[in-house]
Simulated assay, not measured.
Amino acid sequence: MNIDELAIEVEGLRLRYGATDVLHDVSFRVHRGEVLALLGPNGAGKTSTIEILEGFRMRSAGRVDVLGTDPARGTEQWRARMGIVLQSWRDHPKWRVRELLAFQGSLYEPYSTESIRRPWEVDDLLAAVGLTEQADRPIKVLSGGQRRRLDVAIGLVGRPELIFLDEPTTGLDPKARRDFHELVRRIRDEYETTVLITTHDLDEAEKLADRIVILAAGRIVADGASADLTRQIAGHDEVRWVEGDEHLVREVPDSTAFARELFARGGAEIRELEIRRATLEDAYLALVRNSESAAVESVAVMPEPNGASR
């Protein structure tokens, strides 16, 4: 694929603190206009990965290209092409919503060129994120969901080509989460923005992402669309039934075919048939468990400097 069609390309990324590897040979791509979810449990390395992509953390090894630039050498003009929404916000209680966005937009004006978009008009941006009615309110009176929409507005104010959303719905109630998900879809569909979202919520990743990259213990353990990942890694269905006086359980790759064979063989003797189909959640939890167990075992057998084992 032509490199111009990629927003992010990561190959062999590694991050080490002292003798501890936080990221191990991480490689993935994000295509322009795509929503990619970097999914994994707390401590998997998601935030470290995007901090490297944003240019805020230095990598130990590997190659990283974001919008055609190595983040370690990114200029202010390069940064102006990106938007960032952090896990938590810094309150600006004395600002009103419109005032803060107008100020933030003014910071991007010096970098506007033919290749770097001009910042949003404030009223248009307020409408885009659903904050028109809150435009003249102090930020301190906004609800949690409204405050998160403002965070996204700040990330979008420079009309970025690429936006990073780091655990964006943590702490939101169900309605606010649903509204936020709709906003992310609009960012992609209407404003042609590439989105990289980190989350530990599988349901959120399935709803939002064109593709999911699963990170566990600092390693990528799966990469693909939700439906593809389910087919590739979801494992076997569980079938439960009663035959005669026996309660039986079997894990099978194709529960429909197994049920047909079961009834053809047992007929009226088969009762209380239950099928639990494998889900992406099952696969995700199994992958995370296995990866974390492997990481623990790796540390356990690592030789000490004097040749002894732990």
Rank of each mutant, 00 (worst) to 15 (best):
V299N: 07
P253Y: 04
Q146S: 14
L248A: 11
S60F: 08
D254G: 04
L15G: 01
M1N: 04
R177A: 08
R219N: 05
E297T: 08
V122L: 10
T193W: 11
G40Q: 09
L165Y: 12
T132E: 15
V252T: 05
A225N: 02
G83Q: 07
I275A: 05
L86M: 13
I275T: 06
I233E: 02
E297P: 01
N306F: 09
T194L: 07
T69A: 14
V242T: 15
H236F: 10
A127H: 11
E11G: 01
R310Q: 10
I50Y: 03
T132M: 13
L15V: 15
R98N: 05
Q104E: 15
E167N: 05
V288Y: 00
D237Q: 04
T170W: 06
K140N: 11
W89D: 14
N290R: 15
V221S: 12
L285D: 02
I8M: 12
G130D: 10
L162K: 11
R90A: 15
R188N: 10
S298Y: 05
P41V: 08
L15E: 09
K140W: 06
E292Y: 10
V85T: 02
T113S: 15
H247M: 10
K46Q: 12
E272K: 12
R271Y: 03
A234W: 00
Y17S: 07
R289A: 12
T194H: 06
S255G: 09
G40A: 07
A225F: 00
H236E: 15
A176G: 11
L142I: 11
P305R: 12
E9L: 14
I8V: 15
E251G: 00
S291C: 11
L215K: 03
V129Q: 07
E114K: 14
D124M: 07
V64P: 00
G43M: 08
R177E: 06
R219D: 02
S255H: 02
T20R: 14
R186I: 07
G224A: 06
V195R: 02
D210V: 08
E11C: 07
I214T: 12
S112D: 04
A61F: 06
E206S: 01
S255K: 09
E190N: 10
